[in-house]
Design a protein around this nucleic acid. Structure first.
Length: 152
DNA sequence: GCCAACGTTGGC
DNA sequence: GCCAACGTTGGC
């Protein structure tokens, strides 16, 4: 079992939206970055743990826990011209983009803010705290996972 | 294959 | 709203 951190903008889709979904699962669509795609497609396994992270908001930080509910399959939003993540290069017979489904596990009692995670020796090497990091999906070590949740 | 221009991300 | 960092695009 592995661990991940996935970013989302709460104005678009936040932890409360996930918790409110029927079955509390959601396709993680719209990833259009090759590094992130490769991790989703090649490495994420059902049951893996996910730190649910809110970006581009008042207090960016980890707000909840989810798990991988379904392993990678083609991101169908790339095929839809009306979708804002439409990519004409991605064809159903040869999909370029993939997504996984995530399932809600629980909300944290409080937001563990990015500002609290910076400059922690325990998190050295975590992509999230590297300067100007833009990866929306990243691996988290078990030690990092446990440390972050210990701050709750 | 280089690299300038451009668009996006995301913290502040 | 600003802007730095980074990825992508496209002309050459």
């Amino acid at each position: 079992m592995r661990y991940w951190l996935m970013k989302t903008e709460p104005g678009e889709f936040g932890i409360d939206d996930l918790a409110a979904r029927p079955g509390q699962t959601e396709p993680w669509d719209g990833v259009r970055n090759y590094q992130a795609r490769n991790m989703m497609r090649d490495e994420m396994k059902q049951g893996d743990g996910v730190l649910f992270y809110h970006s581009n908001c008042d207090v960016p930080g980890v707000v909840g826990i989810a798990e991988i509910a379904r392993e990678a399959y083609p991101d169908f939003t790339a095929f839809d011209p009306d979708n804002k993540h439409y990519d004409p290069v991605s064809k159903p017979e040869e999909p370029r983009w993939f997504m996984v489904d995530v399932r809600f596990v629980r909300k944290l009692r409080r937001t563990i803010a990015l500002s609290e995670l910076r400059d922690r020796p325990e998190l050295e090497g975590l992509a999230l705290v590297r300067k100007a990091n833009r990866l929306s999906v990243m691996p988290v070590g078990l030690g990092q996972w446990s440390f972050i949740l210990s701050l709750e």
